[in-house]
Amino acid sequence: MQKTDKIYVAGHRGMVGSAVLRKLTEEGFSNLVVRTSSELDLRKQEEVHSFISREKPKAVIIAAAKVGGILANDSYPYAFLHDNLIIEDNLIHASHENDVEKLIFLGSSCIYPKYADQPLKEDSVLTGPLEPTNQWYAIAKIAGVKLCEALRKEHGRDYVSLMPTNLYGPGDNFDLKTSHVLPAMIRKFHDAAEQGHEPVTLWGSGQPMREFLYVDDVADAVLFTLRNKMSDHLYNVGTGKDITILKLAQKIQKITGHKGEIIWDTGKPDGTPRKLMDVSKIEADGWVYKTELDDGIEKTYRWFKQNRERIREVRFG
């Protein structure tokens, strides 16, 4: 991949897409193509095919998706299944039909079965039932992985799927109704600290374990994949280290300066007990993460405070 090659980044205004765009720009890639949702509706097949045919990118990076936490996934199952299915199918099929040389599809660790052996290996996809609260999103992402695998097998396409662990960082969604656990905690602890260190109520028992990856690191993995001929179609992207939700809350409480009580609402669901990624395959190909959790949370919290008045809040329905 040359720095003058045309690269289309789908979903460039989201947390992941903006990090990818930022990384490619920093690395000197000068022919980057983006479109807002008002300029190109990725749910409309004819628009997507016309756009890819006209622009003829050499590479397509799919960071566009409808995303959210447990509550959003559970509340809007059809939107999460339908929109994600149609977005990825339109982009992958249009790329194939127009001979796009390289495609990188970004998914999620939620594609793995709820009780899959830990750490999660790439070959455990479809070996057991999914976590019920986010199965709709997971099924859509599995379909995207299989589309890329099928095109690679049947047509020899250099299409690769990267499955990041839980991501966080600048550009995240901090809306308490639709956000993931880490940005939601930052918002809750920050607001509670500003309101006299009121108690903070968090869902579940605090015992589930999660792995977190700073978003600039997944952008670095995308760059690595662009520059290299990968040996397989599916790779986990993460740190290979996890932490309990309770300990995560304590870290964020300390970083935000909140001094009040933490209340665990055990009547709310925990979600999957553990989600630790086996990242040995991508490490064997030559990529490793860079940002440690404490440093990443501090960077994210600084960004949150600097952008508090204009942070992205996503609502569904």
Rank of each mutant, 00 (worst) to 15 (best):
E261I: 03
K305H: 05
K229L: 05
F224P: 06
R210K: 15
T256A: 09
I245F: 15
L223Y: 12
D265A: 04
R227E: 14
V237K: 14
T291C: 08
H258Y: 03
K229E: 14
G238F: 11
V279F: 03
T201V: 13
F212R: 11
E211H: 13
Q250M: 14
K268W: 07
E298D: 05
W264S: 07
G260H: 03
K305L: 10
R227W: 12
Q253D: 14
T256H: 06
N307P: 08
F304T: 04
Y289P: 15
E309K: 13
F212L: 10
K229Q: 15
V218K: 00
N307S: 12
L226N: 03
E261L: 08
P273I: 00
T272H: 01
E194W: 09
P273A: 00
G271K: 00
I255C: 12
E198R: 15
E298P: 05
S205N: 09
D217G: 11
H258C: 05
V200F: 01
F212C: 15
E261S: 15
M230W: 08
A219Y: 02
V200S: 02
Q207V: 07
A219S: 04
E292P: 10
Q250G: 12
S205D: 10
N307R: 14
G271P: 00
Y289D: 09
K259V: 10
G296N: 04
G238Q: 15
D270R: 02
Q195A: 12
T272V: 13
Y214I: 13
M209D: 09
F224A: 03
G238K: 02
I263V: 15
I262R: 02
G271M: 00
H258G: 03
D242Y: 10
H197D: 15
V279M: 07
I243D: 00
I282T: 06
H197K: 04
K229H: 11
M230G: 13
N307V: 08
V288F: 10
G206Q: 00
G271E: 00
D295I: 10
G271W: 00
G286Y: 04
E283K: 09
A284W: 09
D278S: 04
L293T: 04
Q306H: 08
T272F: 00
L293Q: 06
F224E: 13
S280Y: 12
L223M: 13
E292K: 08
A219W: 02
R302N: 11
M277P: 06
Q253C: 10
G206S: 02
S205I: 02
E292M: 14
K259P: 01
W203Y: 14
N228F: 11
W264A: 05
G196C: 13
T300E: 15
K281T: 13
N236C: 12
K254C: 14
L248N: 00
K241H: 09
L276G: 04
G240C: 07
D265Q: 08
I297Q: 01
W203S: 10
W203P: 09
R210T: 03
Q250A: 14
D242M: 12
G286L: 06
W287R: 02
K275N: 14
K305Y: 12
K290A: 11
K275P: 01
G206N: 01
K305G: 08
G196F: 07
K290L: 14
V288K: 09
G196R: 02
